[in-house]
């Protein structure tokens, strides 16, 4: 019974994290899509992109938030897919997804630093 109660609480907290990160991402993605469409008009060169982005604290902060929200959202989403479509459940799956979350966060923040710092 206790294990079931813990599992229920854990699943609920994951659901909350997933929906909360989704709400953050909804804003981030809208901004990102708008920026992309604006930036892409007429092609872009690295010099052009980096000239606009380097040294911008606002964009640095925004995209860091974006990366962290994705690092929460994507692994939780994949968790369900792995369970339902591949039948992979349990501790090893969760460990793998935690690793994936670290990868996304790490590579993402590196990219943010590269473009905005």
């Amino acid at each position: 019974m206790k294990r079931d109660a813990n599992a229920a609480r854990q699943e609920t907290l994951l659901w909350i994290a997933q929906r909360a990160s989704a709400a953050v991402l909804a804003v981030c993605v809208l901004v990102h899509l708008a920026t992309l469409i604006y930036a892409v008009r007429g092609g872009l060169s690295a010099a052009e992109i980096l000239a606009r982005t380097h040294g911008s604290t606002l964009w640095l902060g925004f995209y860091s938030l974006f990366v962290l929200a994705v690092a929460v959202h994507a692994p939780i989403g994949l968790r369900t897919v792995l369970a339902e479509w591949i039948g992979w459940r349990g501790t090893w799956r969760d460990a793998f997804l935690l690793g994936f979350a670290m990868l996304i966060a790490g590579m993402g923040l590196r990219a943010v630093t590269a473009v905005f710092a």
Binding site: L44, S45, A46, G77, V81, L103, I104, M107, A111
Partner: peptide, 30 residues
């Protein structure tokens, strides 16, 4: 789409991270 995006992201971040090696690397990727 979620699965595709999750798989695409590491590549996306890697490409952008190329800018750390200097503008020329990002330019050649573009």
């Amino acid at each position: 789409s979620g699965i595709a995006l999750a798989l695409f992201l590491p590549l996306h971040f890697w490409a952008l991270g190329q800018a750390l090696e200097g503008e020329a690397r990002l330019e050649s990727f573009l």
